[in-house]
Each structure stands twice: as structure tokens, then as C-alpha cells.
Amino acid sequence: MRTGLLAAVVVLGFVLAIAGVHAPGEPGSLAWAGIALTAGLAAWLVKRLGDLPGQGWQALAAPLAFGATILALWEVLVVGFEVPMALMPAPSAIAARMASGAHLLWQDFVQTFLKAVLAGYAIGCGSGFLMALLADRVPFLRRGLLPIGNLVAALPVVGIAPIMVMWFGFDWPSKAAVVVAMTFFPMLVNTVAGLAAAGALERDLMRSYAAGHGQTLLLLRLPAALPFIFTALKVNAPLALIGAIVAEFFGSPTTGMGFRITTEAARLALDMVWAEIVVAAVVGSAFYGAMALIERRVTFWHPSVRG
């Protein structure tokens, strides 16, 4: 109850503060004192919410309140201190730009995500998976490939972007190629580890049923490998987006998220850059979340999902 009252006070305080800084004229020292007080109350609120016991929406209350506080403070400080756009645009300016530039953002999303990322992700994860099946069949290949796969994980793979641009041109296939290179090895390494995860007992059972390699693979070892495969799918989701965006830094047609970010940053139009970042963040989390959701549906039997 008292938490609810506190939350109402904080919300009211921030609404007043945002209205105050947007009103014409300099905010006085009294106004800043009020804002500081509100921020202090907000911190107290987050602390109270964080100490709440409970699951579900109650566990969400603290992070949501924290995020909202940061956003409100950002707006108040940037507008109140008249921070220039080239340094840091206010959230409201970013939102306005997202609304006015929606068609550009959509174009870039189609170019970068729907074309480059999805194609590259599918090819990279698919070929990594197939290579893992092959490596599983040929132990010699597995012992040779795994250390190399682990080494590649330590390398700045995204640096191959200029080469891919040279090979496949400026349009999305070169970005997809970078994504393929970035997603292949995590998939390979994880799938190989997953295929080794089935227990000896279950394998012996399959053998006693006279199951062949293919049957054991399909009925026992692939299902047992699913958690590992989904780990790779989840790790690869933001990697793929990063690969496509950074590859566009090396040359692209006049559309695409990476292209927009570099050109608008060079023009100091940071509101557009931030709008693009927001899209990238939402798309990246949604992509990751989609994979996590599919994982929960497909590996419903796994202890980590059953809870």
C-alpha cells in the first residue's frame, strides 16, 4: 500500500518535472531540487520493489521501475540542461524521429534483418549443424575441427566484412555471408558437444534394441542435443545482427541499419541514430526471445524448462 503511494508520488513528480523542463524558460534551482527529490524517491521505490518477495509480475516491477526512472531522468536532464542534439538526444526527440522516419526505419529493417540476417542466420546455423553431424560420424574430423572452432571463437570474425563486400558486392548477400561466417562455428561447436551429451545408459538401451546409427541419432542423440543447439541459436541471434550491421559499415546500398547509423552519425543527426539503435535493440531481443520461446516449446522435458 505504501509502495503504491510512493509509486504515485514518483510518477507525479516525474510528470511535473518533464512538463516543467519542456515549458519555456529556464528551470529554477527550486525545480532542480524537486527533480533531485523525485529521483531520490524513485531510487527508494526501486529498492522497495526489489525487496518484495514473489514471482511473476512482482519480479518484473523492480526492473520496469528502474528502466522507467532512467528514461525519465534522461529526458529531464537532457531537456533541462539543453544538452545539444549532437551529444545526446532526449527520449522524446528519439520517439518523434521514430514516428516521422518510420518508413526509412522499415526499409532498413527489411534490408538488414529480413534479407541479410535471416538468410545468413539460416545458412550459417544450417551448415554448422550439418557439419556437426558429419564431424560426429567421422571422429577424426571432429577432433580436428573442434580446436579450430574454439580458436575461431576468439577471433574478430567480423573483420572479414570488407572481403565479403569485395566478393559478393554491396547489397545484402555480402552481409549474409558475414553472418554465415559468424554463426557457423558456435553452431558447430555446440552441436558437437550436444551430440555427445546423451547418456551411456540410453545409448546402451538403443543398442540393445538393435537401433542403427541413424535411428539412435534421430530418436536419442538429437533430442538430447537440443538444449545445446538452442544455446547456439540464442548466442547467434544477436551475433547475426551485429555482423550484418558492422558489415554495412564497409559499404552498402543506400539503405540498411548499419548504413543509416554511419551516415546519420556523420551528419550529427543522433536522433536518427538512436532511433535505429532502438529498432536494433528491439529486433535483437525479439529474435533472441523468439528462439528462447521455441526452445521452451521444443525442449519441454528438460529440467531447466520444467523448473
Binding site: A86, V158, A237, P238, L241, I242, I245, V246, M257, G258, I261, T262, A265, L268, L270, V273, W274, E276, I277, A280, A281, G284, S285, F287, Y288, G289
Partner: peptide, 13 residues
């Protein structure tokens, strides 16, 4: 899950 590297140009500018 957010492509943090996309922030690089902003930080630099």
C-alpha cells in the same frame, strides 16, 4: 541480446 556494437558510432560522435 542487443547489438551493442551498433552503439559505437554514437559513442564516438
Amino acid at each position: 541480446a542487443v547489438p551493442v556494437l551498433a552503439l559505437a558510432p554514437i559513442v564516438i560522435v
